[in-house]
């Protein structure tokens, strides 16, 4: 079936069956590969995108449920004030190692900072709990969120 998908400010008509995860439409149909496949069961957060500004796991968000919603991916974060601050912090602290989970980490971090501009370390841990990083870059993720908060407050 044809579905109208609003993604990163543009409207796309995509042909996908109901039940198709948003993740695979973004990656395979629209060829935006910054959003990653890690587990397929919403257990790692590598596929995190924003739906109307809120982080969601795109592997468990189905195409029929996103019609009319505004979907934003990592590729658009440079143009977002909070996104750009998080990316700057990530570069300053060299948070990444393999980098495969980091799109999802950044999308979640942006969600947190929009909700809470000055989180504590404990609040970062609580919010980011569902984003796995097998390289275990966690302490830089924590520091990166706190640094992004500083950048935004300045």
């Amino acid at each position: 079936m044809a579905i109208s998908l609003k993604l990163n400010g543009e409207t796309h008509s995509v042909d996908a069956e109901p039940g198709t995860p948003l993740l695979w439409v973004i990656r395979d149909e629209l060829k935006l590969t910054g959003t990653k496949f890690g587990c397929g069961v919403a257990s790692c957060g590598a596929c995190t995108v924003h739906m109307d500004g809120e982080p969601v796991r795109s592997c468990q968000t189905f195409i029929e449920d996103v019609e009319g919603a505004e979907i934003t991916t990592i590729e658009k974060m440079e143009e977002d004030k909070v996104g750009a601050a998080v990316q700057q912090a990530w570069r300053e602290l060299d948070v990444v190692q393999c980098g495969y989970c980091q799109s999802g980490q950044i999308m979640s971090a942006v969600g947190l900072l929009r909700e809470n501009a000055t989180p504590s370390a404990e609040e970062v841990d609580e919010y980011m709990y569902g984003n796995a990083c097998r390289c275990a870059t966690y302490q830089r993720i924590r520091a990166g969120v706190l640094r992004a908060s500083e950048i935004l407050e300045a």
Binding site: T33, G34, K36, F37, S103
Partner: peptide, 21 residues
């Protein structure tokens, strides 16, 4: 010294094997 691969790993541009189309 910062990692040379940081910029492309924070903006979705890094290409992994899984990203080959």
């Amino acid at each position: 010294t910062r990692r040379l691969d940081s910029p492309i790993k924070v903006n979705g541009q890094a290409k992994f094997g899984m990203d080959v189309h």
